[in-house]
Design a protein around this nucleic acid. Sequence first.
DNA 1: TTAAGCGATAGTTTCC
DNA 2: GGAAACTATCGCTTAA
Lengths: 94, 94, 94, 94
Amino acid sequence: MTKVKFGGISGEQLRQYIERIEQLEQEKQDIADNIRDAFAEAKGNGFDVKVMRQLIKIRKMKPEERDEQETVLDLYKHALGMLPGGGERDKEAA
Amino acid sequence: MTKVKFGGISGEQLRQYIERIEQLEQEKQDIADNIRDAFAEAKGNGFDVKVMRQLIKIRKMKPEERDEQETVLDLYKHALGMLPGGGERDKEAA
Amino acid sequence: MTKVKFGGISGEQLRQYIERIEQLEQEKQDIADNIRDAFAEAKGNGFDVKVMRQLIKIRKMKPEERDEQETVLDLYKHALGMLPGGGERDKEAA
Amino acid sequence: MTKVKFGGISGEQLRQYIERIEQLEQEKQDIADNIRDAFAEAKGNGFDVKVMRQLIKIRKMKPEERDEQETVLDLYKHALGMLPGGGERDKEAA
DNA sequence: TTAAGCGATAGTTTCC
DNA sequence: GGAAACTATCGCTTAA
């Protein structure tokens, strides 16, 4: 028989899947390296990498979920008195 | 009213959760500091910190390693015909 | 040359360090579990865990670094025209 | 002016970095999707995805595993006097 | 030679 | 449970 079966599975087919996925993961890693290089280059030109990441994250969010997030956060800040107008003015207890 | 509500949430209850979690995180950080001190002390006595970390990792991996990696490695070898006894037996494929 | 000790007393001392650190890491893990439970309980009472995490992170930041962070983020938003009054004045300059 | 500066940063340059990184992240995500599809297809052909992941991880670990873990394990055994050659060399601790 | 910045890497945490 | 992001550590290079 051509395809040797072990436990009902084809070793050859398994090998093909594995190698294909490993190839894809290699490509993914290469791109990840490119991203890292881009950040490094930006950093070398004086940009703040951490802030850039925040920016990208914000741009990726849909406007509605971004607004929702901010609304709830403000709500909680008020509830903890971390914002003016939240009743108790308890800014820094630490 | 006793419990001041902001947008339907209880500020006091929220505050209690937040402060409790912050307290726990502080304790966790203290222990992390102790761990760092222990490594520093070991280093001061001539031990190699990097090797110690690898050591601890290996010791931690041991139980799961036996339950997962070795078992899967056997499966793998069978599937690829790398082990004797993997012949033509029809075992159940998970 | 690294001063690695082999055998005898040094091995025993190494073992003591390892076990002490493993004990500390166990305690750290226990506290991490408690934190997870606290979040789960809060969630069960209707709080938004994700927002709570943001809140705690904000409270953990020093006021100066929090301001700095927000300032730079706003600056970048303006530079990308993501805010009114920012890039609208000269969106396609290059 | 050519490069619009906001607080000393170049908006145009920032935009280029951001968009380039977002492009790269999109490509990375596409490949991640391909990987997911490959796993799904394999699953459809009767393979166990979880086992496949462990397999790939093991194959990836192999080179470093031999260079690190086994070496460190030997070091460990030496340090605890579990192997010959770990004599009684007890050097001065700094 | 040492201290300090910087880049690489491993561990931790968070999101899906 | 797996993938991604953030953080801390480690080693290397450079300059004093």
